[in-house]
Simulated scan of single mutants.
Amino acid sequence: MKKFWMIILPFLLLGLTGCESVQKRANTQDTWSKIEKKKQVVIGLDDSFVPMGFVKKNGQLTGYDVDLAREVFKQYGIKVSFQTIDWSMNVTELRNGTIDLIWNGYSETPQRKEKVAFSRPYLRNEQVLVVKKNSPIHNFSQMKNYDLGMQTGSTAQQWYEGKQNVIHAKNVVLYDQIPNSFLDLNAGRIKGILLDEVYANYYIAHMTKGNYRVIENPKVPADMFAVGMRKGDKTLRKKINQGLINLQKNSKLKELNEKWFGKNSNYLGE
């Protein structure tokens, strides 16, 4: 046994050292000069997250955040490349350098701020409960007797697992992508889905036959969409913030809100 540990211990230490060096680099390295030189920035997203970033039937990537990111980086002459990722691994992809930004309906939360730096917020959101239209469930408290679905690594999961006293389910079922939870809701395997209001409203209005109800709760705090990046990327953060301010001043941000939501009520303003 002693001989085994003598052999395996150096590899374990090497792995830990490697993880620490990746984390240290992510927290200290400013990559703006590399991005500017390549004239390209890579954004990680879940390409099924309507209306922020999703693939249309013709295979084209579209969405509110897709449009917004392109408008921000157009100001700096930089092309935006979008990379589909496993959403539960977004921070790992960011730290490893596979992507430069997490920009896909990404809410700023205390848990995420420990590992990721955020831009200024640009859109208001909150968590809602979606049930079938004929469901006996009419409020959050009634979920205690039923199974509840949510996306792995989502704001909904973080909020549900936090110290909130608003909604508790009999069981929680996690999904890689939200559309899969709707399949289970239709089949009766779960009775509700906890998810972003932005997603719920758009999905029901544009991609279903309206067989669902959205349940809100005044005790649910608003969360803010912002851009996630490595803590070392201070210049990139400044560039994104200034880009968002510019789009706010020239009304382009307002136009995008009206294009994707039909109104400007989610807009944060100054």
Rank of each mutant, 00 (worst) to 15 (best):
D30G: 09
G192W: 01
I245K: 12
M224T: 00
H206K: 14
N217L: 05
R230P: 11
P110W: 12
L244G: 01
T208R: 06
G153E: 06
D233L: 06
Y64N: 05
N96C: 03
A69K: 06
A117H: 05
L195G: 09
T98N: 15
E20F: 09
D176N: 13
I178D: 04
E108Y: 07
N211P: 09
G262W: 09
Q127V: 09
G97H: 02
V214T: 11
E216V: 08
P10V: 07
K209G: 15
G18T: 11
L183Y: 06
D223Y: 14
I245A: 07
S119R: 06
N145Q: 11
D100V: 14
Q111D: 14
K144L: 10
I215K: 02
G192N: 04
E71I: 03
Q29N: 09
H138F: 04
E93F: 11
K38N: 13
R120F: 02
K249Y: 01
M224K: 08
V131T: 10
A226M: 08
H206C: 04
Y76Q: 14
P10W: 08
Q151C: 02
L195R: 04
E114D: 07
W260Q: 01
K3N: 12
N180M: 12
S107A: 15
F54C: 05
H168C: 11
A200N: 02
N134K: 10
V80M: 10
G188H: 13
D100Q: 14
L236V: 11
I178V: 13
K191D: 05
S265K: 04
V173Y: 07
A26K: 01
N264W: 06
K2C: 00
K259I: 06
Y203S: 01
T152E: 09
Q127K: 05
Q164I: 13
E197A: 05
V220I: 15
F54K: 10
L94E: 10
V50T: 15
S119F: 09
E216N: 11
M207G: 00
E93R: 14
G149A: 12
L268S: 07
T84L: 08
F225P: 00
W260I: 03
G15M: 15
V130F: 02
Y64R: 03
S88R: 07
K144M: 10
G262K: 10
G97A: 03
N125G: 00
G162R: 12
P51Q: 04
L12D: 08
G232Y: 03
D30H: 07
A200D: 06
Q151R: 14
W103R: 05
F54H: 12
F182Y: 06
D86Y: 08
Y202H: 15
F82W: 11
E36A: 13
L129K: 00
Q242T: 05
L14E: 06
Q151V: 12
R25H: 13
R112W: 00
A156L: 06
K249T: 03
Q23P: 06
D46E: 10
I85R: 02
V41R: 01
D184S: 14
D47C: 02
V22T: 04
S48Q: 09
